[in-house]
Design a binder for these strands. Structure first.
Lengths: 221, 221
DNA sequence: GTATTTTATTTGGTCAACCAAATTTTATTT
DNA sequence: AAATAAAATTTGGTTGACCAAATAAAATAC
């Protein structure tokens, strides 16, 4: 009666997509295992199953690579995840650092129709609460052109469009200093000593570490 | 990483609750197996596990009975199911016969807080789209006093409060003849021959079979 | 180019949730 | 009370998703 296999499979595909997307390097079994926090033997077994379903390819150098079919499935999960996140924040008043865990559950609800209706109910949002773009029904996702605040020119009006890191800690930090997606910001100065960035934000001067500024993604000008 | 055991457990508890509630007779292993559409061996095994967790009791005559703890859990699932159904109908414009399958998935999302927020978002509905009452956080559920339309007195203004049967077929039939929860109705005549019921509904005269009328639950007067 | 480390793979498990078929127990006829 | 039917239980499986530990292969260091 009950089949929750898709849960697991979907997590593999989603994780693969995210690793490939970062593409700092090729995704191998170890990398995927670490990301999923699963034993390499387990992951190897599953990757072979996914390969049998034509969802992933295993290249000659053992790199694991999503096929078009796999990528489409991964994007469908990401789409669901992000749409649910918008719902949680916009309609149920969750804070942006509280929604990830819930969305991880909700993204596995099986119904394309439900997601479509939810999307319409939310007014077809383009991005999730962290500024990440929401793929459309066909898995098309608009890349939003951004740059880290650390690379942005001085004295220009910028808008915070997304985050380079959506960890709970960073989100809480941003809450604390009152920064959120969509805020206007302007780089006043970059300190030579430690590359910290002093910005003008809501009439206040605010100094951010290089680390923090590097994870604030603003419009490319 | 992944544990979906609760899915299965929750379905057992929910099904047990519903069988006990009907209480046409004692719930034994066979009855539960049939209701869950699972093999009796499987069900026996699981019931013993639930017994170990003090969620069910196994009486001397083999009757399976929810403990208070089990009942509370069952009611929490039913609560989630019904609240999600309201959401689907009220906010996403699903029809009442379309929501059951989706709610069966959504009811397993683990978060009491989410349900509470959803409930508030929906304005604390008292009943689901089929007129079934929604248990509160503590598992308290108001029994709504109703009677089948077949037992109702003639020529009295009645309100349809709930359904005795929420099968897809019955819901579609009601849609077809334009009847929904909350409608006002009045029994004009009961035919001696076949016990069919002729009613006044939205200025129209409508004849319902005894079967159909028996599944329309109206306010007890 | 050998030694060492890292990565991949194999082997032999576990656990939860399911099953069919055989057997035992309990209930119901007659 | 014996025969029969029904329900409960046992037995011996399967499958999916996981693991640890051993081994093999590949990459890197020296």
């Amino acid at each position: 009666m009950q089949h929750f296999s898709h849960h697991s499979e979907e997590n593999y595909l989603k994780t693969l997509y995210k690793l490939e997307d970062k593409q700092t390097k090729k995704v191998n079994n170890i990398a995927l295992s670490k990301s999923l926090e699963l034993n390499p033997a387990t992951v190897l077994e599953m990757v072979r199953k996914l390969n049998g379903k034509k969802l992933v390819e295993i290249l000659a150098d053992k790199t694991i690579h999503l096929t078009e079919k796999g990528k489409k499935k991964a994007l469908a999960i990401i789409r669901k995840h992000r749409i649910w996140e918008v719902f949680l924040v916009e309609k149920l008043n969750y804070k942006w650092n509280e929604v990830h865990h819930l969305a991880e559950q909700l993204e596995h609800i099986e119904s394309d129709d439900l997601v479509k209706r939810l999307e319409a109910f939310l007014g077809f949002p383009a991005v999730d609460p962290h500024g990440d773009p929401i793929p459309d029904e066909n898995g098309k996702m608009k890349k939003i052109k951004t740059q880290p605040l650390t690379d942005a020119p001085l004295k220009k009006k910028l808008t915070i469009l997304a985050l380079g890191n959506s960890s709970d800690e960073f989100l809480k930090y941003l809450d604390k200093i009152g920064i959120t997606i969509g805020d206007k910001i302007e780089v006043a100065e970059v300190e030579d000593f430690d590359n910290s960035v002093t910005v003008l934000h809501k009439k206040n001067s605010l100094t951010l570490s290089n680390e923090a500024a590097g994870n604030l993604l603003v419009n490319a000008v």
